[in-house]
């Protein structure tokens, strides 16, 4: 940890490629062979090709864009809500020359992935949601990611096993965590997340839209850390019910499952080593 004002790239940072979508240079990383898999980040862990991505890329052609306002992708003033973002993602798929993809997403990204499937089911071959945000489960609100005390990150995100992940800060944090430039960068990213979900931390429409995906026969999978202290267990259970999806629990792990159990999590998304067949909906 340092208070330097010189930006230091986070660990696992790689230089992204860019693709233009309506004038926005969208940063993305892409590697691997197999079925094209669009992986949508959550409110943290941008700008990196994590061991989790690497694992996944051994089984699929992983495309990991940074959403407008996150990572190296500038915000676009005309993306003001999740609907705007989903339209943008459809056009991103066009720009990348991909038609039907396996869509996966983590946390906030899981919610966006589900939105994309609801709006453009013909573009989605499979859906994989990791600790997704987006539902309202009575008496089990998702943690307030915008107001969390940095002193609680280790406990809430890493289940008190945060050693080695100092530079993976899941909230705005403080300037002591990675310096003031990183602090401001995280502030901007959380602001981009806030623009999408602050006003309403859940979308009741998912309660009827997700069963429509089930009726269409969309293969879906929900992955959760057994000990998640950000997204309570009732959420992945409800997602799985509504989607008629498999619910895969990664044992002994919390919300930072991508970091703390990269292989097991990748296995949960795309079982290895058997190649995954393309599902037809």
């Amino acid at each position: 940890m340092s208070t330097t004002t010189t930006p230091v790239p986070p660990r696992w940072h790689t230089e992204p490629r860019t693709v233009d979508v309506h004038g926005v240079p969208v940063a993305y990383r892409r590697a691997g062979t197999g079925p094209p898999t669009l992986f949508l980040h959550g409110h943290w862990l941008t700008r990196r090709w994590l061991p989790f991505h690497e694992q996944l890329s051994e089984r699929a052609d992983v495309i990991a864009p940074e959403l407008p306002g996150f990572g190296a992708t500038p915000a676009a003033p005309w993306i003001r809500d999740r609907t705007d973002l989903v339209l943008f993602l459809r056009d991103l798929l066009d720009a990348l020359g991909t038609d039907r993809v396996h869509v996966a997403g983590y946390g906030l990204g899981g919610w966006i992935a589900a939105d994309l499937a609801c709006h453009f089911p013909e573009r989605v071959a499979r859906l994989s949601l990791l600790a997704p945000f987006g539902l309202r489960v009575p008496e089990q609100p998702i943690a307030d990611i915008f107001a969390m005390n940095p002193a609680d990150y280790a406990d809430r995100y890493f289940n008190a096993a945060a050693d080695g992940f100092d530079d993976c800060v899941p909230g705005v944090g403080t300037a002591d965590l990675g310096g003031v430039e990183e602090f401001a960068h995280r502030y901007g990213e959380l602001g981009a997340a806030g623009a999408l979900i602050w006003t309403r931390r859940y979308d009741l429409a998912l309660e009827w839209r997700l069963p429509w995906l089930r009726e269409r026969g969309l293969p879906a999978r929900v992955v959760t850390g057994e000990l998640d202290r950000i997204v309570p267990a009732g959420h992945p259970r409800r997602w799985a019910e509504l989607l008629g999806a498999d619910l895969v629990t990664v044992a002994g792990i919390g919300h930072a499952l991508l970091l703390q159990a990269p292989k097991a999590t990748a296995d949960a998304v795309i079982p290895a080593p058997a190649p995954v067949e393309e599902h037809q909906s």
Partner: peptide, 25 residues
């Protein structure tokens, strides 16, 4: 008022947040 209460994300832009932080420092 700790920062995580005082300055909710988006209350300022990241640019003005950074300017303010640097100015204060």
């Amino acid at each position: 008022i700790p920062m995580h209460h005082l300055m909710p994300p988006g209350y300022n832009t990241a640019e003005s947040f950074l300017r303010g932080m640097k100015g204060r420092m």
